[in-house]
Design a protein around this nucleic acid. Sequence first.
DNA 1: TACTATAAACTAATGACATTAGTTTTTCAA
DNA 2: TTGAAAAACTAATGTCATTAGTTTATAGTA
Lengths: 194, 194
Amino acid sequence: MSPRIGLDRQMIVQAAAEIADTQGTEAVTLAAVAKKLNIRTPSLYNHVDGLPGLRQLLSLYGLEQMHEKLDAACGGRSGDDAVRALAKAYLEFARTRPGIYELTLRAPDPQQPEVAAAGERLVGLLVRILDDYGLTSEEALHTVRGLRSILHGFASLERVGGFRMPLDLDESFRLLVDSYLAGIRAIRKQGQAT
Amino acid sequence: MSPRIGLDRQMIVQAAAEIADTQGTEAVTLAAVAKKLNIRTPSLYNHVDGLPGLRQLLSLYGLEQMHEKLDAACGGRSGDDAVRALAKAYLEFARTRPGIYELTLRAPDPQQPEVAAAGERLVGLLVRILDDYGLTSEEALHTVRGLRSILHGFASLERVGGFRMPLDLDESFRLLVDSYLAGIRAIRKQGQAT
DNA sequence: TACTATAAACTAATGACATTAGTTTTTCAA
DNA sequence: TTGAAAAACTAATGTCATTAGTTTATAGTA
């Protein structure tokens, strides 16, 4: 029932993830993965549904890894400290694992239940962190969108070399996060009738 | 000195841009561009330095188009109004021309003088807009990084379908921009010794 | 222990691309 | 009118993904 146990899905995803992180997502080809694993390309089809299937698995893997890191980073905290911890962990993840970070956002089929669920878990984490800002649930959702935009925007621009000025990147990031946090408070005060 | 005027660089870039915007950047292949122009693939090499060369041209084209739109959008204004107008135009550009927007950030060689210069012009536009916020030039640069992160982050996440909740996207965007603006002011006040 | 069903690996073949080499065609300038 | 040069073409090669069909190893069973 299970002949030749040499290879399995996880090994393939691992190999592919390593290629993605070290050589970029473009370099993730079935040929490259097969070579890394010392097998012939068609053999991969016994474990994975072609290149799109592999990419989908990578997206899922990335979402899970990311959730793990972020969850660990903010521990039980909430409020500004939690947001700062989360932001730091997010950027660190994007820096450390650029390939799978990118794939996290580009699943071939983002609608697929498993990927969608993993995405929602991640968003849920953010919503929870904002718990004690006293936001309505709608405000919280807008705020999560904003926070995700900030984190992804910075990580992404940094990655593509969009920040060229000789100016400390971590400082820019810290200021960005703090500004947004201050902004949320300011806007909320304004919104509340006194 | 100029035989068979049928084709030229600009037509190629146009055709490629159209493919990028309608079918995604992955669909920009020399084969697809050649087909659209009713020529054979190798003929493109007379005008363009292979696929990487074409991509480079597309990046440059995108940066120029974008600068044009943003510049027009904020006119002579500066301050909050200018930032809001710019933000709106930025998002609109990313929505209208998703393909070249994406390529704008992913030139094969971002160091190449022409592309680098176009990128700097764009950043210069942002710096100018922040003119009358009374920021030091270093603060201004951090702020531009923040603003770009916000704009790109939102546009990018929206594009990949990252915002799934049934919640108005424009409202989220407006809130994000306003929060950041409020945040900048708050942080700056804090920084100044009264 | 030997047998067999089956999963997993393989080889071979096809089709899409990008790219290069080399050829033909067209146009303009002399 | 002619010839040089640019622009288009055909042909060929190599890489990749994918499919079909074959071989092989293993696990469970007789």
